[in-house]
Each structure stands twice: as C-alpha cells, then as structure tokens.
Write a protein that binds this DNA or RNA. Structure first.
Length: 670
DNA sequence: GGAGGAAAATTG
DNA sequence: CAATTTTCCTCC
C-alpha cells in the first residue's frame, strides 16, 4: 500500500518516520545536485515515476491494477501488460514496485502465487540472477543462503508464493527470483519456461526468442542451447537442485497463474504461509515479487505494520533474499513515492544473517532504502564514505559461460579499499556494492554487468549477496574494529549477454560498446532520529572488455584554454577509450629535430571523466629556444610497448609564444 | 581458480 | 566487412 501509494508509505500507513526522514537523506544525496534525487533528466522516467507519486503511477500503470482489488486476483495478467507499459525505461518498473510494496500477507495465496513480479522480475531478475547465479556459483550458494537465512521473511509476502514454493522446497537458488520470472514468462506464453531458468536471459530469451525473429538462428539457438543444455532450468552450474523444469517456481507459478495452487507443495504452502505471517517486518517491497506486491498494495495494512521503524539500529538483517529483482521494485516505489520515505520508515528486519554478526542493520532493515539509481552524496555531516584505494582501470569481466576471472584489483596490487569516516558508533554497518554505469548520465546500476561474489581462501572479506531489483548487491560488513574500513577482495564482475539484457522490458540501454563500469559503494548509517543516512561513492571507471582494454586512446581534442603549457600546466585530452591508467608521454625535440627529451606526463585521476584525461605537462627542457619547439605526445592504455603508443601532435597555436611567456613569467622550467 | 589469447559468432 | 562480443582453449 504504502509504497504504493504514496510514496509509499505515508498514505496508507502513517509512518511518521518515513516522511520526516525523507528530506534529509534524500536530498543530501545529491548534495551537489539537488535535482538529482528525482533525476529529472532520467530518461527512464525517473522523475515522473518518482514524483508521480505512487498513486498516479499505479493508476497510470493501471493495468497493473490500479484498482486495487483486481490486482490481487489477476496479477499476472495485469502485470504483464503493465510491465510493458511501465517499464519503459529500464530501471524503473514502478508499477511493479508499487505492488511489491503492498503487504503480501493479505493477499490471497493464490495471489501471492501469482506474484506477478515475475514479469519484471524475470527479466531482470532472470538476467541478473541468472547471471549472477550462473556465472557465479556463489550465487547459488549465496542466494540460497539468503533464502535460507532470510528466506521467508522477505519472500514471504510477496515472494512467498514464489519463494515459498520454489525456495523452500528447492532451495537455494539465488535464481529463484529468476525462476519466477521464468515462470512468469512462461506463463505469459513464453515457450519454455524451464530452460529459461537460466538466469539471465535465458528465460527471457526463450520466451522472447519466439518473439524475436532476428537472431534466433544462431545466437538464439546457441543460447537456448546453452540454456537447455548448460543451464537448464536454473543454470546448471548453479543449482543443480533446481529441478529441470521450472522447478517449483515455474510450476508453481504457472499453476498459480493458472489459478491452481494445487501444485504447490505442501512445504511450499507452509512456507508461503509463514511468509505471510512473518513478513510483515520485512519489507514490503523487497521481498515481494512485483506482482505480489501489487497485490500487496491492495493490502496496505500489513505493510504498514511492518514499517514501523525499527530502528535502524542494528540489526540488520540482510536484505531479504528476495531482494531479488523484484525487490528493487519496492525500492523504486519508495523512491518514486517519496525519496525520503525510504529512509524514513524503514523498519529493521528481525532477521539477521546466519553469519556472525548482524551487520549494519540500517541497510537491510529498512525495506525502504533508496533505490539503486538514486544519486546519493558520499559525505554528509561527519560521515564520509571514501574509496581509499581505487580499482584498476581494467578488469576483464567473465561471462556466465566462463569461470570467474577473479576479483577486481587495485592498480598497485592488492584490492580496492573503502572506508567510512566519521562513524563513531560501535555497531557494525553493512557496506553495499553493486556495479554501476560509467557513462555521462546519472549513475545507476549497470544493466550488462553484475557484481560477482568471490569466495575462497584468497578472499579475506566476507560478503553476502543480495538482489535488488535486477541488480546484484554484495554486502560487506564494515566493522568498527577495522575502522569501518573494508578491503574489497571479494568482488568480481560478471558480464551478461547483451542480447539477453536488451530483451528485457523497459531496458533502453544498449550493451554494445557499453563496457565501462564503476564499483558503487553504499552504506546506510542509522541516525539517532531513527532515520537512516545513506551515503554512496563510486569508483573510477573500469573497462571490462578484453578488446577495449587493448585499444589505444583516441585523442580527438586538446584543451586550448589551459595554455601555456610549459611545465606544471594541465591539459585536457578528450576523445575515446581513455582509461584511468592511460599514459601520456611528451617528447620534445630541438629545432633541428634532435631528440631532446621525453617524459611521462602525470595524469590527474580525480579529474578524469569518461573519455577524457587531464594531464600535467612536464616542463620542457628546451626553454630557451626561440625557434619552434617540436613537441608531441604519445598515448596508450595499460601495459603497452612504446612502439604501440599512439602519437599525437602537441599543438599549442604558437609554441614560441608560449615558451616566451613562460620564460618571462615563470621559473618553472629549469 | 584465474588469466591471457584468440577463434568463432554477432552486429551494424 | 570491420568492429565487437562471446565462447573456447591453454597454461600456471
């Protein structure tokens, strides 16, 4: 309801907290860019969605089930349509989300089952989860773990239908979320659900495949192939468990959709029931599958109940396993509804990780954390989330068809390090990590890449995997005893097939040549007021493709307003394929062409933007020359031989003039 | 498991 | 057809 409604919370549930909190966090987020919050520009319709307010949204989305009641009953159908409708843009499936928000509890079981969420979920979820799950075996485990740990709670309401059946019985698969999707898809008419299981696209693909004529032949076939063969229902790798056919969920889903719940296994049913009962605390959105959420919407009350502000204190149960893609939707609602809301009302989850400590409660606790595509500030008040050690500019992501390619590393060896400054409490917090975009637009989860949890003896940092919306999120504990500092040696990057992702409803981004990502870290700090302060920081861009990493930068333009350029001056090079580790070497020659000297220019990482590089030009040696100085520079990325550098002409309009000026006014050159 | 290379497959 | 993406192979 809430979510739905209003922004979620407010309307239905009077969660005082919610609103109150809103303001601060939300806005803070983008301190720098106020407007951001509701990224107006977001193509995705961000703004609209958000602002629109839940209600409007839904309504508009309408089919989804504007009227409430209907939703419950005919979830899927509506959803489906809705999805299409709403999804316009990738990131937001408001409609879905909304629904999620609703308390699942009330929905009828059948409804729950419906969990339309799958619709959306699938895609994304499928994609994600699949990917993740597929790619990362860990996923399975992880996912499973979640479920196991959190399982019901989250799933419960919304998901419950799905999960319970699926999950509980089966278990583990992280993919479950996906499966649902699959199931949903299937239901929708997608041909085979089962195969789809493959996480990512598989589902989509197949179902879509039918639709798509274009590539069907080769790619599709293969993929399908893979799906079937390799990753049958759930990706083979991942969860063998999953039964071949859609396994529980699918079947369940189908059935449910069909109207049968009969197929649910008793256990599933139980699970579902449990979910309903328990879920309350959790989040609305998160766990709930989209569809279910809708249902939920209808049943506002329950949600509200949950909402109670738990404190953001600690406890933090990890996000529900459910966080499956669908979950994110909930978030979105929230966002949409009221950005702030998220912060506000978040109650804590009673659940905790199975693990050692309950990490930061804050994040998990509230179902209403800011959506992943929200822009958040890296510092606020005494707190600052900072990346102490940046990741290397290159990291070849692995496909689901490959083995892991390891964790992202730091350029100087070791791994990236993130630290939260200004936090003096004794409670540990949870650091969230997901793969974000690195383009010129607002930071948002990258549709074609997912963080991949890496485990093993070489990994010192414990982590948990969760799925928000279609985005996999790695949760890493930030412990006071470690100065709230974490070494990120457990994060790899999984590449999803472009074709799979592009098939998703609402996905507007294209994968081709969209191979740069950023590691995005978030932490949710509980405030005395009961609210939660969310901070976020993104790393430097990371080139994830094998090929692009080998390409040379292409200088298309040199800044002309930063001259003169004698030493210590900065020059901005812009063009294509610049990376954080791009090198620029200046070569100076005497008028007679004699090679005078060459030196690698310093690059200003902090000022680097995508496809541009700020270099500090070293002082020229031949300062006294009065005749033209011949200076050129060479650019390259990563480790390349000198002969492979790309040569460019250094072109100050008038070198002599520059030199004279420099000499007269500066002593820089020596 | 984690790379690095590169062939095979897709795209535009 | 060239650029890119994805799948395979090999090695440590």
């Amino acid at each position: 309801h809430y979510g739905y409604a209003s922004s979620n919370v407010s309307p239905a549930l009077p969660l005082p907290t919610a609103h109150s909190t809103l303001p601060a966090p939300c806005h803070n987020l983008q301190t720098s860019t106020p407007g951001i919050v509701p990224p107006a520009d977001h193509p995705s319709g961000y703004g609209a969605a958000l602002d629109g307010g839940p209600t409007g949204y839904f309504l508009s989305s309408g089919h989804a089930r504007p009227d409430g009641a209907p939703a419950l009953e005919s979830p899927r159908i509506e959803i489906t349509s809705c999805l299409g409708l709403y999804h316009n843009n990738n990131q937001f499936f408001h409609d879905v989300e909304v629904e999620d928000v609703l308390p699942s509890s009330k929905r009828s079981p059948s409804t729950a089952t419906l969990s339309l969420p799958s619709l959306e979920a699938y895609r994304d979820p499928s994609c994600l989860s699949p990917a993740s799950s597929l790619s990362s075996r860990s996923c399975n485990s992880e996912a499973s773990s979640y479920e196991s740990n959190y399982s019901y709670p989250y799933a419960s309401p919304q998901t419950s239908p799905w999960q319970s059946p699926c999950v509980s019985p089966k278990t583990t698969d992280p993919e479950e979320g996906f499966p649902r999707g699959l199931g949903a898809c299937t239901l929708l008419g997608s041909p085979r659900h089962s195969p789809s299981t493959s996480p990512r696209a598989s589902v989509t693909e197949e179902s879509w495949l039918g639709a798509r004529s274009s590539r069907p032949a080769s790619p599709c076939n293969k993929r399908k192939y893979s799906l079937n063969g390799r990753q049958p229902p759930y990706s083979p790798h991942h969860s063998p468990t999953p039964s071949p056919h859609g396994s529980p969920r699918v079947s369940v889903t189908d059935d449910s959709w069909l109207g049968n719940t009969t197929q649910y296994t008793s256990s599933a049913i139980v699970a579902a029931i449990n979910a309903l009962t328990t879920d309350s605390s959790l989040d609305l959105g998160d766990g709930v599958p989209v569809k279910s959420r809708k249902t939920t919407l209808e049943q506002p009350p329950s949600v509200a109940l949950k909402v109670e502000p738990v404190g953001e204190d600690l406890g933090s149960p990890p996000p529900p396993a459910d966080f499956a893609p669908e979950d994110f939707s909930s978030f979105q609602h929230i966002r949409k509804g009221g950005f702030c809301d998220q912060y506000l009302a978040v109650p804590q989850h009673p659940y905790q990780w199975a693990k050692p400590k309950p990490l930061s409660p804050a994040s998990y606790m509230s179902p209403t954390l800011p959506a992943l595509d929200w822009q958040l500030p890296s510092h606020s008040g005494p707190y600052e989330l900072r990346i102490e050690v940046q990741p290397k500019s290159h990291h070849r992501a692995h496909y689901e068809t490959e083995g892991s390619r390891g964790a992202v590393k730091a350029s100087a060896g070791g791994h990236p390090i993130v630290q939260l400054h200004g936090y003096l409490e004794s409670e540990p917090l949870m650091l969230q990590l997901f793969i974000g975009t690195a383009d010129d637009r607002l930071l948002r989860p990258h549709a074609f890449y997912q963080v991949h949890r890496i485990t093993g003896k070489t990994v010192s940092t414990t982590s948990h995997e969760a799925i928000l919306s279609n985005t996999k999120v790695l949760e890493i504990p930030l412990l006071p005893e470690n100065s709230m500092r974490a070494v990120i040696d457990c994060a790899g990057i999984l590449k999803l097939r472009n074709s799979d992702i592009e098939l998703r409803k609402g996905e507007t981004d294209i994968g081709r040549k969209n191979t740069r990502v950023r590691l995005v870290f978030r932490v949710h700090v509980p405030q005395p007021s009961g609210r939660t302060l969310s901070l976020q920081v993104a790393s430097n861009p990371i080139e994830c493709s094998q090929r692009s990493a080998q390409e040379l930068p292409l200088v298309e333009k040199q800044s002309t307003d930063s001259y003169p350029v004698m030493g210590g001056k900065k020059m901005v090079l812009s063009g294509h394929n610049f990376l954080q580790d791009s090198k620029v070497i200046f070569v100076e020659k005497a008028p007679d062409g004699h090679h005078v000297w060459e030196m690698e220019a310093k690059t200003d990482r902090d000022l680097c933007k995508p496809n541009s590089l700020v270099v500090e030009i070293p002082p020229f040696r031949n300062q006294r020359i009065t005749s033209p100085v011949h200076v050129s520079f060479y650019v390259c990325n990563g480790k390349r031989k000198r002969s492979q550098y790309q040569r460019f002409t250094y072109l100050p309009a008038n070198v002599n003039e520059i030199i004279r000026n420099d000499l007269s006014s500066t002593s820089t050159h020596s």
